[in-house]
Amino acid sequence: MEVMTGTRTAAAGAPSAPATPRSGRRRRADGRVAALFLAPGLIGFVLFIVVPLGGSAVISLYEWPLFGSPAFVGLDNYAKLFGDPAFFTALTNTLIFAFVYTALNLVLALAIALWLGTRLKGAGIWRVVFFLPVITPMVANALVWRLMLSDDGALNSALGTVGIEGQSWLSDSRFALAAVIAMSVWQSFGYNVVVITAGLTSIPKEILEASRIDGTNPWQRLRHTILPMISPSLFFASTMTMIGAFQVFVQAQVLTQGGPGESTNTLVLYLYRNGFSFDRLGYASAIAWMLFVVVMLVTAVQFAGQRRWVNYDK
């Protein structure tokens, strides 16, 4: 976690106020003032993040309908969850989605960012183009993809004109999850293009120049100079992309409704449906906690793994 608190960054240590401690009187005054400044944020933080997080755990111990009164059932919801094949399918789908999506996202983002760093006109404009779907409404993005990928859609008719027989991208269980991943990568990798570009531009020109003079080829420069230098950006991008990936919902809901079968059902879609369509808020909360645990585990593993490949020395 320390990376993100900023305690390691140059900015954090230097100018913060407490560097000049004064009298005890002053310090007490700070406490009171701080309470005032913090109050709005802290109240909201407790009310809308801490309490719901705890509440989620409590609700998961109840059978809790939308209409009517809840009944305490202990760990029944969890017992049911571990015997529910649809849950495990949704979990597996979500894990596959998260890893494949994150990998494709980063590879594409890196490729485009490197390409935009070569000699070409209007790099800034192209970067903005790739960023576009990041901020257009996901629902609109997913709707047009559903139209394009449907059996009589644009993709199949384009394939037809070059003599390739189209596929039922959204209703064939072999392709449906891939279609959801493809749409999601298209939608989001522009974000990481910008993150990685920021990392690339921070590499001192002299270092690249020096390694060029050493007679290295572009691949070697990428592998041994550029990648290590931007590894903090990559680590950061992969962590945040992965966390975002576990929240996949709109794409599955709009493109395939989780089908065919359960082949594109995801944890958040399953959570939403159990809570708000099937009237089982308790069960949905149990799913929410499993989602929480999985995200925490994956993030912890990523942080543990960073020591091997992330290089913070410049």
């Binding site: 997080l53 609700i59 959570l271 929480f292």
Partner: peptide
């Protein structure tokens, strides 16, 4: 900062009940 990695979807059920 720790809550930066908390998916908001985890909170929707209790938030809705609140």
């Amino acid at each position: 900062v720790a809550t930066l990695v908390l998916p908001q979807e985890v909170l929707v059920v209790p938030l809705f009940i609140m």
